[in-house]
């Protein structure tokens, strides 16, 4: 059993360090939570969920990240670089089987 919380934090640091990654977005659908949270968005921002999500399914470990890419790098190559970085993480390599590693470019700017 993998400690997904620690792993998520570890991966977040690694993904942020990938050249060309400008932002990490939460992976959960947000619109529903925004509407309730907006009025006191500023005060309630203390607790933030992990930005790289790691979950254990019957087919193995799934990792997903939503990233913003700086305009100066190719978004497609940055997404591959992020994939490679996640796949090369020692904890991921140890945590067989891997189901999927998803990387979604949500903004380019």
């Amino acid at each position: 059993m993998t400690d997904t919380t620690a792993l998520a934090a570890d991966l977040e640091t690694a993904v942020r360090a990938v050249p060309g990654v400008s932002t990490l977005y939460p992976t959960a659908p947000l619109l529903a939570t925004i509407v309730g949270a907006v009025v006191d968005a500023i005060t309630t921002r203390t607790v933030s969920p992990p930005l790289v999500s790691v979950s254990n399914g019957h087919a193995g470990l799934s990792v997903s990240a939503r990233i913003g890419v700086a305009d100066t790098k190719s978004a497609a190559s940055v997404s591959r670089l992020v994939y490679d970085t996640i796949a090369a993480n020692p904890a991921i390599r140890a945590a067989e089987p891997i189901d999927t590693i998803s990387v979604t470019v949500a903004s380019i700017d």
């Binding site: 509407v35 591959r80 891997i98 990387v103």
Partner: peptide, 29 residues
């Protein structure tokens, strides 16, 4: 309150040789 990925639209796949990889760029991006 208006988070930028609220209009991400469809996911557009990006190529990768690994069978585990699911790479996308969103329509919104």
């Amino acid at each position: 309150g208006i988070v930028r990925d609220a209009r991400s639209g469809r996911d557009i796949p990006l190529e990768h040789p690994s069978p585990h990889a699911r790479l996308f760029v969103t329509e919104g991006a």
